[in-house]
Amino acid sequence: MAKPGKDIVIEVRGVVAGFGDHIVLDHVDLDVYRGEILGFVGGSGAGKSVLMRTVIGLLPKRVGTIKVFDTDMAAVTDLERQAIERRWGVLFQQGALFSSLTVKENLQFPVREHLDLSQEMLDEMAIAKLEMVGLDAKVCEKFPSELSGGMTKRVALARALALDPEIVFLDEPTSGLDPIGAGEFDTLIATLQRTLGLTVFMATHDLDSLHTVCDRIAVLADGKVIAAGTMDTMLASNHPWLKAYFHGKRARTSDMSRK
């Protein structure tokens, strides 16, 4: 495992964001270290997706600073921003595949834009990435509307990984996957993290993922990060919400299955 502790790749300080009168993030502070898998939890509607979109730059923040790779995202030029965007991959909660492109074209699209590769190499890489996420070459020619929910998730993950990014943002990657698929997915993420030094920022509700692959967990509630630390810290915490989350009925079953 990588050693979290030193190198901060994402630094969020005092970020406020919201829609109209509705403040979703209220002075959020968060660090993500290089090479770690950060599980990000919080109730539905707590603002996990909003924080992710704010970090990526899809939503404007009102106050605060966001630094990615030590660069203040508010002060970058367009070119620098593009260079940084090339280094991260994003899996949206709804997949966000391009509906008029086939699966293969979806995977090749970012690669074609950024790298100068032969068509043969593009095709092979598309199939390789598909197999990595547990699909096979048969889905290549399908359109996104012809995929099942879980397949959409996998293709979207493959697209997020298409350029071998340094950071991946995953918004509920395992929701809609069967338990076996979700387990394979966790293994895949762990493998990539180990081999490529990937940093993973993962919003999830999947307690199994949190247990098995996440190095650290951050908890978002009431617009703030109320806790961040390892699973053991979470389990030891006395905060009522954390207790309900990690010691609830579902948590116990997922905990028991591990022992």
Partner: peptide
């Protein structure tokens, strides 16, 4: 050694015949 797992992962990839 770190890359072994990735190598194994890609070793299993089956390319399909061209349509």
């Amino acid at each position: 050694e770190d890359y072994r797992a990735l190598m194994d992962e890609l070793h299993g990839v089956k390319l399909d015949e061209p349509p």
